[in-house]
Amino acid sequence: MRVEDVDGLRIATFGAGPRVIIAVHGISASLMAWAAVARRLPDGWSLVAMDLAGRGHSAALPGPYGLPRHAEDVLRVADHVGAGSEAVLTGHSMGAYVAALAAAERDFARVVLVDGGLPMPLPASADPDEVLAATLGPALARLAQTFATPEEYVAFFKAHPAFANAWSDDVEAYVRYDLTGPDGALRSRAAGEAVREDGRWLLVESGRIGAALASIKSPLSLLRAPRGLLDQNVGMLPDALAAEWTARLPHLADELVPDCNHYTILFAERCASLVAERLTSAR
């Protein structure tokens, strides 16, 4: 992995192949979310991931945040590494929505949305902040906590329902990368303000996501996990929602990835291998 900073934005390149994938992480994640997939890419490929503003080693970048700002950063990173229309663009979770916005502005060889990217309209009577708290409660709580040692933070993640039966060296590297702060008061690098602002944008601007998806000219596919953020039996993007959007968008190819949850779709060996295959094949 080769790292560099672009105007305060940390980017990492995995591999050295001439064919490039630009990858975007989720709402409280980091570029290390893509390491397991990157390691499974075939020869001739490389994957460029970034820490979005307010996360990882880009945490010091100030707001305002919001997904359009992240989409601009994605395109800036693509320009920096010389990734043109022959590159593949992908995003996981919130990163899939960012990828959709970026792909609406520029053509790519293909766009692969991983367990995200489909609009989920907010009911008219719902309060965005209450919905956000209910949806991201565990993640937001983590951002406010401190931990005495790295091992305590690792243990915290090991108890997470999504990872309880799926721990690996890749997950541990992802978790340790996220830590910052002094001994005895370690915390996540992700800024709570950035997570809340981006989460609220997702809830109130679903129409802009739908419009972006409809305007994408590149081949577009969706990989979904059948289980959710807490490993529950209903995925983040249920079958009915996927069916609604594939009916609206005939160019959207939908695929359910068996036996994974919202997180392990990028970490579990079989799931990460399938994601790597779909990123590098024209299927």
Rank of each mutant, 00 (worst) to 15 (best):
P68D: 13
W34E: 07
E269P: 00
R110C: 07
R106A: 15
A243W: 05
L274V: 01
G116Y: 01
D7N: 07
L41E: 06
V24W: 09
L279Y: 02
A103I: 11
T135W: 03
G8M: 00
G44D: 03
A240Y: 07
A87G: 09
V81K: 09
L41M: 02
G56N: 10
R227E: 01
L75M: 11
E244F: 08
T180C: 10
F156Y: 13
V257G: 01
V112M: 00
H70M: 08
A141H: 08
D169A: 15
F108G: 15
A134R: 03
E4M: 06
M50S: 15
D198A: 15
A185M: 09
A191L: 15
K158D: 09
M1A: 15
S46W: 04
A23F: 12
L47E: 05
D170K: 02
L222C: 03
P150Y: 05
L220R: 04
W45D: 00
R208Y: 02
R10H: 13
I209H: 07
A162Q: 03
A268E: 00
G235Q: 02
L75N: 11
L136M: 10
A185H: 12
H25W: 13
G95Q: 01
S168W: 01
A144V: 15
A247N: 12
P62I: 08
A96V: 05
A253F: 11
F156Q: 07
G82M: 09
A272G: 01
V3F: 11
A272S: 04
S188V: 13
G15P: 03
T149Y: 00
L143R: 00
Q232M: 11
A126K: 11
A71S: 06
A60P: 10
W167T: 06
A214T: 00
P68A: 14
G184M: 04
R176Y: 12
R110M: 07
L61I: 13
G63D: 06
G63L: 04
L186G: 08
P42C: 04
L249D: 04
D178Q: 14
F157L: 07
L101Q: 05
E130Q: 14
E130M: 13
K217C: 15
A71H: 04
C271R: 02
D259A: 10
G95K: 06
A212F: 04
P138V: 01
T180Y: 07
S93M: 00
S58E: 07
H251R: 12
A102S: 15
L132P: 12
L9A: 10
S93K: 01
P150F: 03
V74Y: 01
D169K: 12
L61Y: 10
S28D: 10
